[in-house]
């Protein structure tokens, strides 16, 4: 949904405004999941409700079912290159996290959050921090992608479903830390190629 959110902000201010807005929205989501939801299922349902609420907010804001587009004089190739750069930056930052002393704690949380909590790891702090990082990157991706895609309130569903499918398959391959991220990369690449060859869905 952050992907969709970003697409609605004017391009000129997009980078700053979208990061500020999405950080605020992700903070609200984090508080809701911490205060109301306890387990993965509960938190998933809250996030789904939150996503629908945001989608509806955009629908009400614009009161249109038509697609919006963003035009710019900068060539499309530049935006594509920027997407690749963002991807590389994201991987490097993730790798740095996992290699740092904090990385061990993050892996501990991935393995068993309850146990990590018992051993004194501040799981809430790390969850919030990771949510923030992923929010910022998804928002930037949305900003960069806005010039090459049609924009409409429910546009977040596609990336959301792809994310669940890719991560669902990748998590079956096991591991923690960068290994999971590498699995995600491999699964994304395979599915991406498969859909490209099959003409997409």
């Amino acid at each position: 949904m952050y992907f969709a959110l970003e697409e609605y902000l004017p391009l000129t201010y997009a980078l700053i405004l979208s990061v500020v807005a999405s950080v605020s929205l992700s903070s609200i989501l984090f508080i809701l999941t911490q205060k109301i939801g306890r387990e993965t299922v509960g938190r998933t349902i809250i996030a789904l409700g939150y996503g629908i609420a945001l989608e509806e907010a955009f629908r009400l804001w614009y009161r249109t079912s038509y697609f919006l587009t963003v035009t710019t004089d900068i060539p499309l190739l530049f935006w594509e290159q920027l997407r690749i750069a963002l991807f590389v930056a994201f991987i490097i930052i993730l790798a740095l996290f996992y290699l740092s002393p904090k990385g061990l704690k993050i892996k501990f949380i991935e393995e068993d959050a309850e146990l990590a909590e018992l051993y004194g790891v501040n799981t809430s702090l790390y969850s919030f921090f990771l949510l923030l990082i992923s929010t910022i990157f998804v928002t930037l991706l949305g900003a960069i992608s806005s010039v090459s895609s049609a924009i409409f309130p429910s546009m977040g569903w596609g990336p959301l479903v792809s994310g669940i499918v890719v991560y669902g398959i990748a998590s079956q391959l096991g591991g923690v830390g960068m290994r999971v991220q590498l699995n995600v990369l491999v699964v994304s690449a395979i599915l991406g190629i498969a859909f490209a060859v099959g003409g997409g869905i």
């Binding site: 387990e39 299922v41 509960g42 349902i45 809250i46 409700g49 629908i52 609420a53 509806e56």
Partner: peptide, 26 residues
């Protein structure tokens, strides 16, 4: 007419408070 999905969204966000049993052993 614009708000009925917001109503569903609000119920979903509050769902874990009321529907705890459903995912208690998730």
């Amino acid at each position: 007419p614009q708000f009925h999905l917001v109503f569903y969204a609000a119920l979903l966000i509050l769902f874990p408070i009321f529907g705890r049993r459903l995912y208690a052993q998730g």
